[in-house]
Amino acid sequence: MARTNQIQAIALCLGTLGALAGCQGNRSELPPVHLINQMDFQQRFDAQEVNEFFQTVDCAKAHNPNQCEGRAARLPLAGTVAVGQLHDDDELYRGRGPDGRLLDRLPAAIKLSTELMARGEERYNIYCQPCHDYTGGGQGVATQRGGGFSVAPKNLNDPQIRAMPLGHFFDVITNGKGTMMPYAAQIPAQDRWAISVWVRTLQVARTPEEAK
């Protein structure tokens, strides 16, 4: 009799222990426990990590944001240029010719090809499609929800926009326009040109009678 009670008690204990410990894959808000983790965190920083040393200065007194915002990654100071980042090719990086006007062709550094157009289509569908939709109509998914956009995206097939030079699209992506924010930080210059080409392609595809 006592024996069965004991066994029951032990089984009960093991059962609760198991229930408390849970199963593999259970959700938890507690960080993973690594028994031996002396080398998990070493004297170096990952990207986007916090460095407490740079939080000791009060931001109001700091000479530049690098000193107080606690980023392990050091931001380049205003007015400095890293090697290879001068971007002095005005055609490629600003979309403007020697006369300072927006280009209506691709910059010399980029060649039109089917790869460029495929790249443009892919990148357009990543970065522009949420708002401007797949055809450029301006009915993207993001504009249809949560009360809708306070300013609707422009219809890229609008005659007014169709009349714009190719460089205009590059310029809008790079610097933004009106309520549309700049995308220069998200998209490298080469891809911005590829997207511009795709925007033009969409416009032409939309209006076969006007296409040349």
Binding site: A21, C23, Q24, G25, S28, E29, P31, P32
Partner: peptide
């Protein structure tokens, strides 16, 4: 079972 990263790591959601 319990010392495996399948238990210690999977399911972590801060």
């Amino acid at each position: 079972y319990y010392f495996s990263p399948k238990y210690t790591d999977v399911g972590y959601r801060p």
